[in-house]
């Protein structure tokens, strides 16, 4: 992939981590699979499903992992059923529309083919980011959101920007992670040039 500015990626990674987000580097597609299964295999999660926020384009192969365990939102599915799966899930996976380096944030659109629930209900959220989705500034990303809506002639009904795990300092000012949303949030930055494409 041409034109990816590594300094922007690096800035995103630093800022994301300073926002208490976690970062995963992978070099091969199998690593991603291992990683996610590892994360969801903790004792408390063993029997619980993994939910995926939508057909992830080039990551469609996630479907092939373990049909019993993985539920992927598709247009036409029953929202009640998917919601129930998300509420019980160990881990949620989504892609993102864009990420901003200066704020260490990712932006997710709720559309027919992509659901936000996997980023909200499970205790762990894994967000897959292609390097070329990272823009320098949040300001720029907001401009992209506006442009996307115009290009598609349609605004996503919900847009969500995530800049770190769910947190609170409501009791004695002490910072605690994982109030209502996920306690752990992993950014998986994927460089297409290292063979993540399906076979």
């Amino acid at each position: 992939m041409l034109g990816v500015d590594e300094t922007i990626v690096q800035q995103f990674e630093e800022k994301w981590q300073s926002n208490a987000g976690k970062l995963l580097h992978i070099n091969h597609r199998e690593e991603l699979e291992d990683l996610i299964l590892d994360l969801s295999a903790a004792d408390a999660f063993k029997e619980k499903p993994i939910v995926v926020g939508g057909s992830l384009g080039q990551w469609e192969w996630i479907r092939t992992w373990n049909p019993e365990k993985v539920s992927i939102w598709s247009p036409g599915d029953d929202p009640e059923v998917f919601r129930h799966q998300c509420a019980n899930a160990s881990l949620g996976i989504t892609g993102c529309a864009w990420a901003a380096a200066d704020a260490g944030s990712v932006c997710l659109y709720s559309q027919k083919d992509s659901s936000l629930l996997p980023s909200l209900l499970p205790p762990i959220h894994v967000v897959l980011i292609a390097k070329d989705q990272i823009v320098l500034s949040f300001h720029e990303g907001m401009g992209k959101l506006y442009q996307d809506a115009h290009d598609q002639g349609l605004w996503p009904s919900l847009v969500k920007i995530v800049a770190g795990p769910s947190m609170t300092a409501d009791i004695e000012g002490q910072l605690i992670l994982g109030v209502h949303g996920p306690r752990d949030i992993y950014a998986v930055i994927i460089d297409d040039s290292i063979g993540i494409q399906p076979n």
Partner: peptide, 22 residues
């Protein structure tokens, strides 16, 4: 003192048919 709070949510419309949430 942060660039953003953890969550910024924008609502634009009620749920469109076929969406998972909203």
């Amino acid at each position: 003192g942060r660039h953003l709070s953890s969550y910024t949510t924008m609502i634009h419309a009620p749920k469109s048919s076929g969406s998972a949430e909203g």
